[in-house]
Design a protein around this nucleic acid. Sequence first.
DNA 1: CAAGTATTCTCTTGATTACTTGAATAGGGA
DNA 2: TCCCTATTCAAGTAATCAAGAGAATACTTG
Lengths: 218, 218
Amino acid sequence: MPKARAWKDALYHEFARVGKALASPRRLELLDLLSQGPKSVESLAHELEATVANVSQHLRILAQAQLVQSQRSGTFVIYRLAHPHIVALLHQIQAVSEGLHAEIREWRQACLSDRDALPPVTTQELQQLIASGDVYLIDVRPAAEYAAGHLPGALSVPLPEVACHFQHWDDSRPIVAYCRGRYCLYAQDAVEILRQHGVKSRRTEVGVWEWPGGAPVE
Amino acid sequence: MPKARAWKDALYHEFARVGKALASPRRLELLDLLSQGPKSVESLAHELEATVANVSQHLRILAQAQLVQSQRSGTFVIYRLAHPHIVALLHQIQAVSEGLHAEIREWRQACLSDRDALPPVTTQELQQLIASGDVYLIDVRPAAEYAAGHLPGALSVPLPEVACHFQHWDDSRPIVAYCRGRYCLYAQDAVEILRQHGVKSRRTEVGVWEWPGGAPVE
DNA sequence: CAAGTATTCTCTTGATTACTTGAATAGGGA
DNA sequence: TCCCTATTCAAGTAATCAAGAGAATACTTG
């Protein structure tokens, strides 16, 4: 039945177009950054510490696979994910990868836990804290990412400004920092900065877009 | 901060190992077949209409990414998925791909619907039918895949045997055929065979492993 | 132990991909 | 209109990957 073979070949060829787009570390990191909100080529290149030309080419490949869309805004070109499902796909890959390759778990432990005095805040805990309202919930990502979506009740305190803000705060309320996700070090760094100023704080277990209630509020 | 870059590079490199494994149509089809149950290299090569050597190499790549595991059984080597999460990852890729590339939907419509007199059975409908017990629910996949897991109450009627079995059945009970999934033509073929014998039947909308209740019973 | 077979390994060829560098394009602001 | 800047294009090189053919391996069965 050669007809059935042709149909299957075409079908899996299409699926592999998505697979090929996910086959490069650079492109996975680009998608991860774009999951935090729309960004320009230049800012993506800066975050990746890669050349603009290189990032531009990777974005072209992602656009050909229709995983991202671009849109001109002034002199910049702004890229965004083409569909919210892609965030779920990313997390699925990361989950499978972490499930299969124990070294990732170990790295994460090594990077995140040994510097961390206090254990991270679990999702349930944070939900209770938000409901009670008695918490400084700080979003330590860049302000643009906060603007693209954040947890309910969160304050935007980008990492470089953490050291300035806390001084005017009530000492008795707990401080909880969150960032891009499981593999982002920003919240970890914020907690460390605060600790060096003698202020206790904790980070969340997961990032914004892993929040169970779905998309965060604007 | 070059240390953070090194950590990120290593991390996304690991994620990309999974991505690279998913970047080939052949490997995606292999994973899809393995999601139906463990199989030998030879039977996989036969289904893919590829050489054994070629399939063996693709399996090696999948094994290096730790997506599949092998185990010797007699003179055969049996491969299986390393983790049930991988099925979810596959379906996620297919969903994103189908969401982005409209042509896949069109192909599927063209292949599946025009030959089909009766509309497919929805998941809710089938659940009601199974609960009532008043249905011939036939699993038209190869017997080995039925053995590896099937829907509750299903009969194993491999495609080549469909023409023999139906004759002893009660005409008044409805017949519903299911197969590997959304992109498998077996159930479609079974319905067509039955129609040529003057018997009405329908196929399900989804396959075994897309069943909402999770893994099927043994 | 020997024969037979399923599977894997090795090597080669051709094709695809990644990254860099330098030039070109295309808007926006003066 | 002209310049300025963000982005893209193009060319070249190094590296990686896909697929096939044939040899080698590993295991079972007699």
